[in-house]
């Protein structure tokens, strides 16, 4: 039996350690998993808390400004679907989810499914059989905005994770998850 041993390099561990150090915080196991999972968090929340639900706050098409266009790798002014939702359980908001979806990179079927506003982007991609690469772009701690304060009824700092789903070499969905630092401590 031949055995070869290799330490696995993981940039995420370093990102999380840096976040803890910079803000003098200690993240829980669940928070670390939610920050480091390279995909949608809804399936994880389903497993941890029982079936969670999605509430669509806002969903509309808009023309990408320069910042969003640069993030998505599209031309400024190109049409994107802006999706703004809350994942909740028993009326308690768990995670605020913001997604940017370039319209030109999705089939009509996917766009129509998204517009129904009933299903998470991750599930839609999964059901449509899309093969993707999922990359975590950033994890950070941010100050609560007035909207977040109203939604979560707290002025706590917010943990955020931004990740991209790439299909045919292009970003098809850019998602940002946001929740209070005091959440998922158990």
């Amino acid at each position: 039996m031949s055995a070869k041993c290799t330490a696995i390099k993981n940039e995420l561990r370093e990102m999380i350690a840096r976040l803890e150090q910079e803000h003098n915080i200690k993240l829980s196991t669940t928070q670390k998993i939610l920050l480091s999972i390279n995909g949608p968090v809804t399936p994880i929340l389903d497993v941890l808390y029982g079936e969670v639900r999605l509430f669509m706050l806002d969903q509309h098409f808009e023309n990408a400004d320069k910042d969003i266009a640069d993030l998505l790798g599209i031309d400024e002014g190109e049409e994107i679907l802006y999706r703004n939702s809350i994942v909740f359980k028993h009326s308690k908001p768990l995670i605020y989810v913001l997604s940017y979806i370039p319209k030109s990179r999705c089939s009509d079927r996917v766009i129509n499914k998204l517009l129904e506003g009933k299903t998470t982007t991750g599930r839609i991609m999964n059901e449509s059989g899309h093969e993707t690469i999922r990359i975590i772009n950033d994890i950070s701690l941010m100050k609560a905005t007035p909207i977040l304060t109203e939604l979560f009824k707290t002025t706590d700092d917010m943990l955020t994770r931004e990740y991209s789903m790439i299909h045919k070499g292009e970003i098809v969905i850019l998602t940002k998850d946001i929740y209070p630092l005091s959440y998922f401590k158990e």
Binding site: S2, N10, L35, P43
Partner: peptide, 23 residues
Amino acid sequence: TTDGSITAILDVLYGKITLTTID
């Protein structure tokens, strides 16, 4: 249940982990 990378999760939870190829 995750459809993401288990290696990444273990690494974040435990610190640097190591992979040994048995065969």
